[in-house]
Amino acid sequence: MYSFNYLKPGSIKEAESLLSESDDNKVISGGMTLLPTLKQRLARIDNLIGLEKCGLDKIILREGLLNIGAMVTHFDVSNSALVKTENPAIAQLASHIGDRQVRNRGTIGGSLANNDPSACYPAAILAMSGTIHTTKRDIKAENFFVDLFETALEEDEIITSVSLPKPERAAYEKFPNPASRYAIVGIFVAKFDSEVRVAVTGAGEEGVFRCQQIETALSAKFLPESLSEINISADGLMSDIHAEADYRAHLIVELAKRAVAKSIAR
């Protein structure tokens, strides 16, 4: 690892000002991606700004929305009584991210800011039309995820929390890579009063995306059978050593059916 200084600001304001001082300053939350990257010398940083003392670790209900602080760990999301009541699907999703030790350190804010194309949380936030609150503004999920490992965040902008509306029904299904546990394909299905939203992670060449074909079919009738005639095009889907694009296309439909069934059974 290259050497760096580790800073522990006591407030988010202070963290923001430290971050804006240099392009070579970076924020760290759980560090489950950043630290391995630094260990491999794939990144070089002057100052690493830890957010652990910035008070971003609360889960609250605010104006009817579930608000999860950026520094809340996957374990705490999966284990919170409030999350389990308000949004059991995201609690279940969090309980299957990475491995146990990753869940004890990794955070929702870190996962969203990193926007790994195979991460689980982006699918949930996009499907539930969440809002990402930052030090500068509120960003709708639709405008937040830009491309692989790229978000709408500016260089000196920090995620503070995420707000999620309560869906009538929702569930996440993933097909994990047997070695890495990352999603080869992950599907989050969310049914609201006015619409059905379906987001896909792990499969898109540009990261997480919504699948209109499945949304339309489920809006007509919210049942797994509604998807039996659906064929998803492999265009724009990833092909890599883990899976071909057409296999991922097949998985999208299959996992969507399972997610719908799971959300109805819940």
């Binding site: 630290l35 391995p36 030790q101 004890n104 350190r105």
Partner: peptide
């Protein structure tokens, strides 16, 4: 009290 991977955390943390 929580299990973590000590290779993926800094001593200062």
């Amino acid at each position: 009290g929580k299990s973590i991977k000590s290779c993926t955390m800094l001593a200062v943390q």
